[in-house]
């Protein structure tokens, strides 16, 4: 039996990747299950998915806490989520990154494969969706499934969801990634800024969860506490602001769904401040700016 944990973001297709891997392993005569961490995450929020593969029927219905492999669809997640948490010492990390395995920093030094899946995806699919490309890297790095089986798995799972034409493009992304995957060892000792969860006993939780604003050792809870949730890492593109072109019409401030643009200064010195720790990079501000004062850049 081997167990794989995928780390991605809502909308990146981590679940489909986990399913396609299961399908690929099944093509080779294995029993395989794939499942999401059942959440309600929106696009961009960190998500997980899991694949278990064995020769015989798998009975376990729990989440995977000590994976043999972790697959990270977006290397920015490494600073947000402890992706190597529980990863076996003999395990391996497969990461979408433009860097070499030796330059990757995780919680522990383990075997590591990297592939610039974002670039591969942009070239083959025209979109930065990396769930198929990363499977090519998995096949190359682990040797547990052949690239032909991965292609079959993608055609099976992606084909059912998005049609044969797009599935073929995704299969091509996997094949392209297979060719450019690098395998080595990453650095260990990285401590990610993991926020502890506020998990009081039942008698310390507000009755029925009716909650006032509270400062807890784990941060703010209750009304207004979402300010602690920094959504800025979700973005692929970031707004670049040119104050010289800005006429302070405030349309971007008004439209920003994330309230990430603030007005600062007084009188003629008034200007806008972009709070990248919240900005999700949607680009509405740049699209609506009447003076082209905002550009989106990767």
């Amino acid at each position: 039996m081997y167990e794989v944990r995928f780390h991605g973001r809502g909308g990146q297709g981590a679940v489909m990747a986990a399913q396609a891997l299961a399908s690929a392993a099944f093509q080779e005569g294995n029993y395989a299950v794939a499942f999401p961490y059942f959440g309600a995450e929106r696009r961009g929020a960190p998500v997980m998915a899991f694949t278990r593969v064995d020769k015989d029927k798998i009975f376990s219905k729990t989440l995977i806490y000590e994976p043999d492999y972790i697959v990270v669809l977006d290397d920015k997640l490494c600073g947000l989520v402890d992706v190597s948490d529980g990863l076996k010492d003999s395990g391996m990390a497969i990461i979408n990154s433009a860097e070499k395995p030796e330059d990757i920093k995780l919680g522990k030094a383990v075997k590591c494969a990297t592939v610039d899946a974002t670039t591969v995806a942009l070239e083959t699919l025209g979109q930065p969706i990396t769930n198929s490309a990363i499977l090519g890297a998995f096949a190359k790095a682990t040797g547990l499934v052949s690239i032909d089986s991965v292609v079959e798995g993608i055609m099976d799972i992606f084909g059912n969801r998005i049609g044969e034409r797009l599935a073929t493009k995704n299969a091509n992304a996997a094949k392209a990634a297979y060719e450019v995957t690098q395998v080595g060892t990453c650095q260990g000792g990285f401590e990610c800024e993991k926020a502890d969860k506020w998990l009081p006993g039942y008698d310390e939780l507000p009755l029925g969860l009716a909650t006032r604003p509270m400062e807890t050792p784990e941060g703010l809870v209750g009304p207004g506490s979402f300010v602690d949730n920094k959504t800025g890492s979700w973005k692929t593109f970031a707004p670049i602001y040119d104050p010289d072109k800005c006429i302070m019409c405030r349309m971007c401030w008004f439209y920003c769904p994330d309230g990430a643009i603030k007005e600062v200064g007084e009188g003629d010195a008034k200007t806008l401040e972009f709070h990248h720790e919240y900005c999700k990079g949607c680009g509405i501000c740049a699209n609506e700016c009447p003076k082209d004062a905002i550009k989106m850049e990767r």
Binding site: K197, L205, L209, T211, R212, G222, P223
Partner: peptide, 13 residues
């Protein structure tokens, strides 16, 4: 005295 009641809650709670 603002309070949230009936929040969407994960299994942790």
């Amino acid at each position: 005295d603002p309070m949230i009641i009936g929040s969407f809650s994960p299994p942790e709670y």
